[in-house]
Amino acid sequence: MHASRIMVRDVTTCGPEDTVAEVIAILNEHSFRILPVVDGDGRILGAVNTLTLLSHIVPEYIMEGYLQSVPFAPDIGLLRKHYRELLGKRITDVMDENPTTVREDESLLSVTAAMIRHDRFEYVLVADEERRLKGVISSSDILRALDRFIPEDECDA
């Protein structure tokens, strides 16, 4: 099965001039977890998802694991401080510049493998040869597709 069969075609996107605050407003409004960043011609520049944004508010010294438990830190205060700093940034400064992209004619097997290899994204972007965005496939889209194509008798067994 080709990627184009299960991808969502009507994708909301944002542009390189948008700020993080604007992107978060879009994500929250539609309950999206991913937003592709595209230029005027619809070419993919990158993508943001909720995890990309969160990764920018957790300091690296925590990520490195030297402070495994920090019950003594004012965590909300610190996270909000970084969050406020993040809101004013351009989306191009924080986006994932190499989101996993697949071609429309790629098989579901390689689409699934590509998604698993990229551990921060539960999505792949579908693009043409010139990296123009054609659609998005999420991990749940794949599961739903599998479910739909299993014959009834196999399901019962």
Binding site: P59, Y61, Y66, L67, A73, L78, K81
Partner: peptide
């Protein structure tokens, strides 16, 4: 230093 330095980063981060 290995125990004080991580706390220092936490503190200087909070201090900005």
């Amino acid at each position: 230093v290995l125990l004080i330095a991580p706390v220092t980063l936490l503190i200087t981060d909070a201090l900005g």
